[in-house]
């Protein structure tokens, strides 16, 4: 396992990430009342049921689509020249500097601490029906994986092949892919924790809980 203390210090040295807010599809842009330097909020509420600060509205086929800040942070740039213009999909609208949360730091460290099972090809991935059923019934932590186990279905160009797990036996601690989304070759699909390392992983989480202070 890598030196968690060093990793944590490296994250502390740069405790934010820049998020580019782009148009998810084509449409005519109307910016909300926002200015460079404004502090914005991400989704709020117990279940994140309240959307974040409105950044812009994209109108297409008479349907206005609000574009909210997905995380809290400070707006470092806004492409105001696009106001009232029809834009292509993927056009950058604003940049948000987001201070890292405890959960994000935890996830970053876990990616270093867990055994990562990587995507062999750029493809869509699904759990096999048996595993999927088990995860839906309880959660991913309930699935014990072992070398050679038929764990996933790899779907590429509508062709599907089973994907066998390779790596140490353990429980699925983190799932890094979503159904129907393409995952690049080499990107992590799963974080697996061998059962004898569970206490170490718990310790990583404990350190983040105690050492990381979230900024407003």
């Amino acid at each position: 396992m890598k030196d968690i203390s060093a990793l944590l210090e490296a994250i502390k040295a740069q405790p934010f990430r820049d998020i580019v807010i782009s148009s998810p599809h084509t449409g005519t842009v109307t910016f909300a009342d926002i200015r460079k330097g404004d502090k914005v909020l991400g989704p709020q509420g117990q279940w994140k049921e309240k959307p974040g600060t409105l950044i812009a509205t994209l109108e297409r086929e008479r349907n206005p689509k609000p574009i909210y800040a997905a995380e809290k942070g400070e707006l470092t740039s806004i492409h105001t020249e696009l106001q009232g213009r029809f834009v292509e999909a993927g056009t950058p609208l604003a940049v948000l500097r987001h201070p890292l949360t405890r959960a994000e730091v935890e996830s970053m460290l876990l990616r270093q601490a867990l055994h990562l099972f990587l995507a062999p090809e750029r493809a869509k991935y699904y759990f096999t029906p048996d595993v999927d059923k088990k995860i839906r019934a309880s959660d991913a932590h309930s699935v014990l994986v072992r070398e050679g186990m038929e764990l996933l279905i790899m779907s590429r160009m509508k062709r599907e092949v089973p994907l066998l797990y390779t790596g140490p036996a353990g429980i699925i601690y983190a799932v890094y892919f979503k159904y129907n989304e393409n995952i690049d070759a080499g990107a992590p699909l799963l974080g697996v924790c061998p059962q004898d390392q569970l206490p170490t992983i718990q310790e990583v989480i404990m350190r983040v809980q105690t050492e990381w202070t979230e900024k407003d």
Partner: peptide
């Protein structure tokens, strides 16, 4: 030429056609 989010999204096609 216009970049769209998906070839499968009819709203994208209609919006580009109108624009």
């Amino acid at each position: 030429l216009f970049r769209v989010s998906s070839y499968h999204d009819a709203n994208e096609l209609m919006a580009v056609a109108d624009a």
